[in-house]
Design a protein around this nucleic acid. Structure first.
Lengths: 350, 350
DNA sequence: TGATTTTCCGTGTACGGTAACGGAAAATAT
DNA sequence: ATATTTTCCGTTACCGTACACGGAAAATCA
């Protein structure tokens, strides 16, 4: 019976005094089983420690299970590109287990676009969803619907303060700001720091880097209380406006320590390059191609990076593990490591 | 991913005008097939793009394929412990595909012990071997034998300059030394640097950190030619001898910049802790528990780390992919990223 | 009570390979 | 020429699960 711990569905059937068809029915909650039989089968499964054979299962099953990734649209060279690469990796892995990964996109600045994307996601009837929460309230509504339908969901990048998610993969935001301050100052007192921020036209969008900024400011005030921290707002689209704002910064409140908390530090680097400004210590986040270029040219001294590709891949894997391989639940909150990149190790990143 | 992807062994058999038994024989080089039939089958496989169904294969096959990991013995808290963790991960993954991972150990200072380990490895009749080359000549002899038997092998940690390996996973050693110099000096001129090295009693053992040291020294002489670089030798076992050597260093040729190129920087940290020496900038390699402790306490400012666990896991995976899943050959040389750890990001490492 | 519907469950086949078995054809020996 | 090997290949019994099918028993209806 228990040869090599290889307990089959037949062993369970025999021990429970039913046929393998019945065992299969309870395994998949397919109904058509009396409460008594179901209880008996469940008990035997427990006692024998029966685990279905993944390969036999995958071989016998016809239908393809879907996993949806719900992420923002993006242009080439933007942050989400790396996430998309990770989705590709996750897709390959999922394919091994006969699962298909579908990517559904939305405009991260348009809530209705997000709502339509949610509807499309449900239409796919997935077993699981990977999502990065951009619109707080809408997302809360959506994940409640997912829970109701018994669809697993996994947060990447950031998460909401609710309790139904299967797992979360992302960076510890507060700590990343704290670390950033240490990298920027090299641990030695500095007179002033200029934080470059994106001017937000639309209100209501939550700022995902707020926590990071808090960590940064805490480090500064704990270590160098007399250091002056200023905020400078720039326009991400309009080059002229942006250059004007930075010109004004350098004339009115100059600092040789510049930092940004999102992935757009290349905007600052572009300015420094054109103006021929050297000698600033500049630190930013994330490994966009343009950021790496700035790092190599020396307009940026350090980047703090995370493997958002691995996050996405891990998120997909966790759904595969649970819903296809019937493994036990994964670790809930998974904080990615924070990678410090400079010109000497960036070429070996990834 | 392919078009239909639904090509089975029966399709191949039909198209080649043979039975599936014959197709299976050529698939596994099991012989008992005429040259003509074999050629025909191979051609059809190529044309149809046939890929055997992994799950069906795993379901039908009885025997367990073995993968051997050939690594040095170690004590708790030593470098190879992390590698062993990675072997565990690789083992879980391999188990999904019905493969068993066997670890064979040897004394890295005893060549005969290594030779015995090689013999034991061959006795296991593995489909693949993961190894870290410690004894150059003996390893060369061994891998030649592996090639002759058609056994795949993958290098981790470092590799030899021969051409039969399936893949290599390790750190770019020269670059890691170069990077280390930048981290130690923070890119600003320093007067002197003391390199702490392990006094080697036995000759003939190759020093795996030589290349790293070269990278370090190149950085220093390129950036700060007047910086004095000294070598100080310490004993790894005998605490008194070690303390005496370090005492002498601090009195005769002191420097506030200390570096080690292996994983033993905690030896230096231990000295600094006991002597109450503060104010040195100390950089080392690898995330041993003792190194992390020293980092948190501030006796070490930075560690350069690699995920040797991921290396081992990736090495095992590559053998699984090729020999069990019949995938195409993996990327040959895989350089791990170099991670910079300080007290603010080390707690999120892994 | 007999007819009809539900509930519940056993049986059988398909899924795509693996490998043992045995037999026909070809090669070699007697 | 027949007897004996070899070579080569088709057949077949699994591997463990999913799911359609159909039938017996129980419940509901007439």
């Amino acid at each position: 019976m228990e040869e090599n711990g290889k307990i089959t569905i037949n062993d369970v059937a025999k021990a429970a005094g039913v046929s393998k068809g019945t065992v299969d029915r309870v395994l998949h909650n397919r109904g058509e089983v009396s409460a008594a039989s179901k209880a008996r089968v469940l008990k035997v499964i427990e006692e024998l420690g029966f685990r279905p054979n993944v390969h036999a299962s995958l071989l016998a099953t016809r239908k393809v299970r879907k996993i949806v990734c719900l992420i923002p649209e993006f242009h080439q060279g933007e942050f989400w590109e790396l996430t998309e690469r990770g989705i590709g990796t996750g897709m390959e892995n999922a394919a091994k287990y006969g699962a298909a990964v579908v990517t559904v996109r939305y405009d991260q600045y348009d809530m209705e676009s997000f709502q339509r994307a949610c509807a499309r996601t449900l239409d796919e009837e997935p077993v699981g969803v990977v999502l990065a929460p951009m619109f707080r309230n809408e997302t809360l509504k959506f994940v409640k619907e997912l829970s109701a339908r018994g669809i697993y969901y996994v947060y990447i990048d950031s998460k909401l303060e609710e309790d139904g998610y299967l797992a979360y993969f992302g960076m510890p935001m507060y700590q990343s700001g704290y670390l950033c301050a240490d990298i920027l100052t090299l641990g030695s007192p500095v007179r002033s720091v200029n934080i470059i921020r994106i001017a937000r036209d639309k209100k209501g969008l939550s700022d995902p880097t707020l926590t990071r900024r808090t960590g940064f400011i805490d480090y500064i005030s704990e270590h160098f209380p007399e250091c002056e921290v200023r905020n400078v707002f720039i326009d991400p689209k309009d080059r002229d406006l942006r250059f004007k704002a930075l010109d004004r910064m350098f004339s009115e409140s100059p600092s040789d320590h510049l930092v940004m908390f999102n992935s757009r530090i290349h905007l600052v680097a572009g300015y420094l390059r054109e103006r021929g400004v050297r000698g600033c210590r500049v630190v930013g986040f994330d490994v966009l191609e343009k950021n790496l270029a700035a790092l190599r040219e020396g307009y940026v001294q350090a980047l703090i990076a995370q493997h958002s590709d691995q996050q996405a891949a891990a998120a997909i894997d966790s759904i595969v593990e649970v819903s296809l391989l019937h493994r036990s639940l994964p670790k809930r909150d998974n904080f990615t490591q924070m990678d410090i990149l400079n010109r000497y190790n960036c070429d070996y990143y990834l």
